[in-house]
Design a protein around this nucleic acid. Structure first.
Lengths: 206, 206
DNA sequence: ACTCTCATGTAAGTGGTTACATGATTCG
DNA sequence: CGAATCATGTAACCACTTACATGAGAGT
């Protein structure tokens, strides 16, 4: 349900084709809400059918066209309504913590590998989010720059502030996942030292 | 894909009916992987069809029966294999941070309400997870007690250690979400004080 | 001529959600 | 006798994933 609002958030700064949208997506909102192009195109069609956006065919070369979408008043209203309604939180479904809870059934090597993968996973996200933070500070994100150009001066400060704040939260989260996994690595070391029996045949299932 | 392993994790400590499983689920693994009964029953059937578990019809009263499942050797192997394979991480899809990134479009009241809801959401989770931590320490979780009874003495320490460690991680996460949202509340106050123009008609879409 | 980017999708499948359906048993 | 709990599902729907499909235009 959030995809359409992520799309509206982008289209609200100015008209874009599905293709451009998809590109901008991966460089901005995509950092908090992933969507592949195979999901974006149909969603745009649906949103158009519901009157939230309108598409205009534009010629491209001799025969080809591209469809450029802009937000309708109904779309603007839908977006602002959404901003005013409470979020629905998804129930927990956390594969990493699920696995962590039963790591005694894994070999020490597999447990270590799990934590290492967790660290590198979150280091990847961290790098993305820290990069985004730097781009926000430098107004080097093209989407943000366009948005600020379209925003009345008095509102620019808070526009930047909420972006910063959002990515700070994500950075915190990534750091705490990494810290947790590092403690996990230490825990594995400790348990292995304390109990020579782990790594035995039981853990491998043989 | 994780559901079946969550179910196997429970069944590995001893046979259970779908109904019992579902009850135990919400009191243990359910804290990291939610699943409604309408998903559990069909999944058990599928797992049986694939030979991971086996069900036995047991009489209950005069006419009724219940189906009690136990893990087969193939199921045990599947579980241990899963423990040894790298996790697949889902792409980010985070409604709260998506909204936070565009909160300049909301009224200050809506922004505040959003953060308050975020705090109470995570305080709820926090309470659950802290409760679970206390039950782990007191061995007051019946599922954990059963598991320890079935675990060789040398492996008990690490069984408890990984559970503790998992819930510690979840508690950390909840705390940091709460801290983030509190900072969000402060940010809203600050922006409102700095800029009397927010809360104006623009933000409401009129 | 070839390749890269632009541009827009469809189709099949999976995992999960919500709502509904049904009947036996046990306990007060 | 009625209510709670035991017990097991089905059906319709939605969001998302993966893989595939197609063709025009621009640059080398």
């Amino acid at each position: 349900m959030s995809l359409r609002f992520a799309l509206l958030a982008l289209l609200r700064v100015g008209p874009l084709s599905g293709y451009d949208l998809q590109k901008q997506f991966s460089l901005s909102v995509g950092h908090v809400w992933h969507a592949p192009d195979s999901q974006i195109y149909p969603e745009l069609r649906k949103m158009e059918a519901e009157g939230l956006i309108e598409g205009e065919e534009q010629p491209r070369g001799q025969r080809a066209t591209r469809r450029v979408y802009h937000v309708t008043p109904a779309g603007e209203r839908a977006f602002l309504d959404w901003m005013g309604t409470p979020l629905e939180y998804a129930r927990v479904r956390d594969p990493a913590h699920l696995r962590a809870a039963y790591l005694e059934a894994a070999t020490p090597a597999a447990a270590r590998e799990f934590f290492r993968a967790h660290i590198s996973q979150w280091e990847g996200e961290l790098a993305q989010w820290e990069g985004e933070l730097r781009r926000i500070d430098a107004v080097a994100n093209p989407m943000l720059a366009r948005r600020l150009a379209v925003t009345e001066p008095g509102a620019r400060e808070r526009t930047v502030a909420f972006k910063r704040f959002t990515y700070e939260g994500l950075v915190d989260r990534a750091r705490s996942e990494i810290a947790w996994a590092r403690r996990g690595l230490e825990l594995v070391e400790g348990l292995e030292a304390a109990d020579g029996g782990w790594a035995g045949s039981r853990a491998t299932g043989a």
